[in-house]
Simulated scan of single mutants.
Amino acid sequence: MAGREERVRRFSEVFRRLPVNDRPAAEPAAGAKDSGVVVRALPDSGRTILEIVNDTPYAIRLAGVVKGDPSAIVEDLGRRLKLAPQAADGGRQLVIDLAPYGLSVVRVGAAGASLEKPTLYPPEAVLATMEARFQDLSIQLATLNRGLDNPLVEPPNAGFEQEPVTPASATVGETATPIPGGWRLDTGARGGAAASLDEAQPHAGSRSLKLESPQGAASVLSGEFRPGAGTSMLVQAYLRGDKGQNVRIWIEGEHQGRPYVRRSEAAVSTEWRALVVRASDIPPGGLASARLRFESTGPGTLWIDDVRVLGEIAPKAVRLNAQRTLLAALQAYREQRYAEFARLADSHWARHPGLQALLRGTRPGDLSAARAEPREDAPAASALPADRTLR
């Protein structure tokens, strides 16, 4: 109520114009609630009251055909105006401008009158507002679908268990065998550095990745992968060395054509030890691609095994409910069910705190092809004479 006193006051004044009726109100036509505007005809001592309710947060113009006595007086009781509906096929055309969540009470001076063929004409500004929200929900759904099936994302062959295969193009005497999954030695490594698969003392399984750097620093790169859509990422790996040494772990990626690089440094010992690195400032919408780099800072041998990358996103139950809600909202917009679209677009699941990071991405500038075109033939309001315009 706070801050909405004037709106409530206007609604109450119009509501008081409705006749007292002990009988249950008739159900609106099928689909009327979803479209956003409900029209009911109520008897009133030889006259007819048309109760018109706008159940959307948008200002909307409603046009319909009043059927009944063509000479009956038509009045807007809320605004205390005499209306001038124009002759139309089957009756007279009535046009009413409805405020957001507004109520309009129209009295027809004849019994048995009704309002047929109600048609909604949202203003251009309202259509632009709904279009912007539609685009936001479309981006959120697309980003949500990226990580819906499995939030666990990792580089190819992250456990180093795939069998190495010597390429057919290898020359006689060539001993270097590519590591499956795109793992490779950094081309900047010098002094006889080498990366290979090692079957001696892996942390788990049958192999680990071995990085040898006899003369200085060297690094090994993972193959590219596409992480989840969250704004943070956890990288876990098991490492050990031939001696105590420092290791740098790099997260390198790309977001909207711009590089993303984060680095952490940790100490490793001669025993397998789990290291966990968190990147908590990933741009909204996630990285388009990423790779990991493990760098030994001095001469020695480093073993790496069981690399895992976990993107922090909402639980699967939340994501499934949000996906269903977003799909229903987008469908309601395409079918011009404005009340249903407004309800779903502002619902708990569409604005769940666990999904808000997905909404902060950049919205495309081009309008969607699914947008409902504005009606160029929207009729003039019945409260104005045909030769007058509102400035």
Rank of each mutant, 00 (worst) to 15 (best):
207 R>W: 04
225 F>G: 13
275 L>T: 07
164 P>D: 03
122 P>E: 09
203 H>F: 15
121 Y>H: 15
315 P>M: 06
283 P>I: 01
104 S>H: 02
157 N>I: 05
204 A>Q: 14
319 R>L: 01
358 L>D: 01
119 T>C: 08
327 L>T: 14
249 I>N: 02
229 A>L: 00
178 P>M: 09
46 G>P: 08
271 E>Q: 14
149 D>I: 06
165 V>M: 07
129 T>H: 10
389 T>A: 13
237 A>N: 06
283 P>Y: 02
335 E>H: 13
145 N>K: 15
177 T>H: 03
82 K>M: 07
291 R>E: 00
90 G>K: 07
271 E>F: 03
322 A>K: 09
257 G>F: 02
174 E>G: 11
187 T>W: 03
386 A>Y: 01
311 G>A: 10
373 E>Q: 15
281 D>N: 13
324 R>I: 04
279 A>P: 00
194 A>Y: 12
301 T>S: 13
300 G>Q: 08
270 T>D: 01
330 L>D: 07
86 Q>N: 03
144 L>E: 06
93 Q>T: 10
209 L>D: 09
211 L>N: 11
26 A>D: 03
372 A>H: 05
356 Q>H: 04
316 K>N: 08
163 E>M: 12
318 V>C: 08
191 G>Y: 04
211 L>Y: 08
161 E>L: 11
251 I>A: 11
120 L>V: 09
93 Q>D: 01
145 N>H: 07
325 T>Q: 10
126 V>D: 05
182 G>I: 08
265 E>L: 02
124 E>R: 15
65 V>D: 10
39 V>A: 08
55 D>Y: 09
322 A>Y: 01
143 T>R: 15
147 G>V: 01
390 L>P: 05
141 L>N: 05
316 K>W: 00
161 E>T: 09
125 A>R: 14
238 Y>L: 05
213 S>W: 01
93 Q>A: 09
188 G>P: 01
78 G>M: 03
97 D>M: 06
173 G>N: 10
352 H>L: 01
266 A>D: 00
300 G>R: 10
62 L>H: 11
10 R>C: 00
299 P>H: 08
